[in-house]
Design a protein around this nucleic acid. Structure first.
Length: 718
RNA sequence: GCGCGGUUAGCUCAGUUGGUAGAGCAACCCGUUUACACCGGGAAGGUCGCAGGUUCGAGUCCUGCACCGCGCACCA
């Protein structure tokens, strides 16, 4: 009846197929849920984690696109009004770092550049690169609704309203507090942008009047004038809180004051320490408790200030040995303990040692927000896959610290606030109307800082859907699944929950699905410096996108990292071709055969028919449980080792001997079409391409009632 | 220090109310049978990290330990 397509005479050619098929899908308009018919099962929504507009697709993205597209295609075929909303990320600090490197190469630097000019340069740079990432997402076969695409800078109005509301609710405050400062990037960070690194350095025991104090950072000690010990420490019971002691210190005589505080660990060192409140979190807390003076010793560039006397202007790194030398000359070094292992906090981006500094910044009070989130997590309104992330989240939320959302960088959403030049009071001002300080009446200036990028992306789900009035918000919020990397569970996922709850009163998503890291074939983290970065597009070009997608999913349980070996993908490239060739055989055998609507099978074919039906039941359940790793494996196995190896082989004999040939032919066709449907979410290109070449078939039952339609909207078999 | 994972075939990993272990890749043997050599058939391969406990029965539950990885924490 139908002549076989000549294409089948050659092996499956993904390069020739994929772009054409993607275009077909896009032109159908069916990525847009508004165009889906018979969506009787309600809405299903996934908001895509916004992709860095500057980046190019890496292996992790490849996994995101594969998993999310599988979920989305599955739900669409089941008759859900399915929305997958794509987005691009301006990626604040990340992008600024990339751009700074570019400037560096050109012999320029951002410092001293006009802010507006720099912003515009980065914006142009970002916009120019964004079309690249967009086409790469398409190359992965992502069936997201491009008509609803959002950019993280688009949601600025929402972010501003949130800022104002939190300010009015006293959840945001301007605080002169100790923050983590990177002297290379010249910005403060939240606690999450800090990476702890174990280092082996020296611990110096210094004579401080009658005491011996231990320190790993002698360069901070110039201004130390408080000596702290535990109130219960009998060794120092002769000293009373508030006692003054004259002593000789690095640059001459000084007066020290005795402070008793139970934050002191009597076991450590000598049980006595001096404090540097400006440059140490713990010391800051002690100073706050006792209302002690705080003085800056190190400037924002990491250089010593005039308080360091002859060392002023020197970088701390160079100054340390010189300071020790001087202390030794003065006989103030009691001993030096080498090989002292301790943890140093560093910038997660450049590894520069973080210098705590006291700065006036915007902070969010997290406790009240965290409590609400904990309630929803405990009541199971948010489900975690894998489940242990729930524990991790609860632990974090229960110990949460206030969040510094100010960043001293240009690339980001400017903070809509005024700062008093006199009393440093900060005021939210989204309408740009405030002209004097509401606290002291003093002059105000615009805050020059930008928001931590996670403050805005934390509002992504409700902001992209147009909270509060947009129809999309009403239809698609709360969203169903948030699928992203386990790595950003605190940065992003937990904050989305807190901010989403705060603004909308509802959880932003019902299920959190977290995938693990994609590692190289040897199980090592990919990095440019190691040169082991695998570009997913190289693999898709070689073996086809379908091969890449199913290869990323088979056996890859949520949360665990995946070692991406090329052989893995290669194997599924063969599988694409296997499907292709099996189809050729089925079409050859059934070309003159009318497929009956209710086939009558012989005994063994009937068994096979039932076996597949059982398989469909199993995998449908597993799809609903997000066990794609097992569904993909089962489909692969059934197609290859049951359908191809057993059913096809069996049919050859039957057809040749003309024994129950009709039963065999009907089974071949039915199984093939059923398998194409179930494989489609995993391998959309090859299945759609084959589908388009099949004759009209009675099993076709698209969700909009047409007799033959795109496979992407065929009904998921049951 | 606290917390979270992991430890199963050479490699990468599955194993869902406890019932004497599975897949893919690699390696081995045989086979070019007209959908496919991007193939087919066959065989091999594991004291399930260690030690106890619960049980008729434990990879699966409990306790302890070891090693690997990660997260959190203000130990100078």
């Amino acid at each position: 009846m139908v002549l076989m397509d000549e294409k089948f005479l050659k092996p499956y050619n993904p390069q020739e197929t994929e772009q054409r098929i993607y275009k077909l899908w896009e032109e159908s308009g069916l990525f847009n849920p508004d165009n889906l018919k018979n969506t009787d099962k309600g809405a299903f929504t996934i908001i895509m984690p916004p992709t860095n507009a500057n980046g190019s697709l890496h292996a992790g993205h490849g996994l995101v696109m594969s998993i999310e597209d599988i979920m989305v295609r599955y739900k669409r075929m089941q008759g859900f009004k399915t929305l997958w909303l794509p987005g691009l990320d301006h990626a604040g600090f990340e992008t600024q770092v990339v751009y700074e490197k570019k400037l560096e190469k050109e012999g320029r630097t951002r410092f001293g550049m006009d802010r507006k000019e720099l912003y515009k340069e980065i914006l142009d740079f970002t916009m120019m690169n964004s079309s690249n990432i967009r086409s790469q997402i398409k190359a992965m076969g992502a069936s997201c609704d491009w008509s609803r695409e959002k950019f993280t800078l688009d949601i600025t109005p929402t972010v501003y309203k949130t800022f104002q509301r939190m300010y009015d609710d006293n959840l945001i405050y301007r605080g002169n507090r100790i923050v983590s400062w990177c002297s290379k990037h010249q910005t403060s960070f939240s606690d999450l942008e800090i990476k702890d690194e174990e280092k082996i350095e020296s611990l110096y025991y210094l004579k401080y009047g009658p005491f011996t104090i231990a320190t790993s950072r002698p360069e901070t000690k110039f201004g130390d004038k408080y000596v702290v010990m535990h109130p219960d420490d009998k060794r120092y019971s002769e000293y009373k809180h508030g006692d003054k002691i004259e002593l000789e210190w690095i640059n001459g005589p000084t007066t020290a004051t005795v402070i008793k505080d139970d934050a002191i660990d009597m076991e450590f060192g000598t049980g006595v320490m001096t404090i540097t409140p400006w440059h140490d979190n713990a010391d800051f807390e002690i100073a706050e408790r006792h209302k002690l003076d705080k003085e800056q010793v190190i400037d924002e560039q990491g250089k010593l200030l005039p308080i360091a006397g002859e060392f002023a202007g020197q970088h701390i790194k160079k100054a340390r040995p010189l300071i020790i030398e001087k202390l030794q000359q003065k006989g103030l070094v009691e001993k030096i303990e080498e090989n002292y292992k301790h943890v140093v906090r560093t910038c997660y981006k450049c590894g520069t040692i973080i210098e705590p500094q006291i700065k006036s910044q915007w902070f969010i009070k997290m406790k009240p927000l965290a409590e609400k989130a904990l309630g929803k997590i405990h009541s199971e309104e948010i489900k975690y896959i894998p489940e242990h992330y729930k524990k991790i989240t609860i632990h974090w939320l229960e110990n949460i610290m206030d969040w510094n959302i100010s960043r001293q960088i240009v690339w980001g959403i400017p903070i809509p606030a005024k700062i008093c030049t006199q009393c440093k009071h900060g005021m939210a001002d989204i309408e740009n109307k405030i002209t004097k300080c509401s606290s002291c009446g003093g002059e105000v200036v615009q805050d020059n800082d930008t928001f931590d990028t996670w403050f805005s992306s934390g509002q992504w789900p409700f902001a992209t859907l147009g909270y509060p009035d947009n129809e999309d918000y009403k239809t698609f919020y709360p969203t169903d699944v948030m699928e992203t990397a386990g790595e950003i569970i605190f940065f992003w996922v937990s904050r989305m929950i807190m901010l989403g709850l705060y603004i909308t009163g509802k959880v932003p998503f019902k299920t959190v699905y977290l995938h693990g890291l994609v590692l190289d074939a040897k199980g090592q983290k990919m990095s440019k410096s190691k040169g082991n970065v695998i570009n997913p597009l190289d693999l898709t070009a070689k073996y086809g996108t379908d091969a890449f997608r199913i290869g990323m999913v088979v056996g890859n349980t949520p949360g665990t990292s995946l070692a991406l070996a090329e052989d893995r993908i290669k194997g599924y490239g063969k599988f694409s071709n296997k499907i292709w060739n099996a189809t050729r055989f089925v079409l050859e055998q059934t070309k003159d055969f009318k497929i009956p609507e209710m086939p009558s099978y012989d005994e063994e074919d009937k068994k096979s028919d039932e076996e597949l039906k059982n398989l469909i039941q199993e995998i449908t359940k597993e799809m609903d449980e997000y066990k794609f790793y097992i569904v993909a494996e089962k489909l692969y196995h059934y197609f290859w080792h049951t359908f191809a190896d057993i059913i096809i082989e069996r049919s050859k004999k039957k057809i040749l001997e003309n024994r129950n040939a009709d039963s065999a032919k009907a089974l071949l066709f039915t199984q093939l079409t059923t398998l194409l449907k179930t494989l489609h979410p995993f391998m959309p290109f090859v299945t759609e391409e084959i589908w388009s070449m099949l004759p009209e078939n009675p099993t076709s039952q698209s969700s909009d009632g047409a007799s033959k339609n795109l496979l992407m909207i065929e009904k998921w078999p049951s």
